[in-house]
Amino acid sequence: MDKKPYTEKEMARAYVPVQVYTTRYDLMEGFKRGTIFPELDKPYTKVQDDPKLEYNWLDKGEQDNRRKLLRVVQALEFTAIEFNLYLDTHPEDKKALADFNTTCRQLQTVRREYENRYGPLTACGSTPSRYPWPWIEEPWPWEIMG
């Protein structure tokens, strides 16, 4: 953390305080908010104050099982990305590293479950493909209304 008094600071440059990881939101909360770190959670006041707008569709509850499981994959992968970016600038943070590793293990399990049931998430995956080649199956990610 940058705690240098003003007089020790160099002129003509910007300072950004360095984050120190202590706590995080739980899985779905972090995913919904767009960050797992409470100290980085700085929502736009306009959205924050409008209960109607917030997390619009997420609170409706997912009806179909594929989407429900996909949400867990997405949330775990999102958590992994958050730790990944944090660790890029804090490579020696052991707590963040341990939580990253836990997230990766959970993600592996859930991904495998999703891919077994609904088809591959990557073409060059770690598992052999069933017949016929399922990669071409719709919907593609942008075909969300179908």
Partner: peptide, 29 residues
């Protein structure tokens, strides 16, 4: 509101990215 939800998520990512670039700037100095 469905679109706003997505815009809100993407906006927050920019906040996090700013922080990481800022920390990189500290490391760079």
């Amino acid at each position: 509101p469905c679109v706003t939800d997505v815009l809100r998520f993407l906006r927050e990512r920019e906040v996090v990215h700013f922080q990481r670039f800022g920390e990189t700037l500290e490391l760079m100095y």
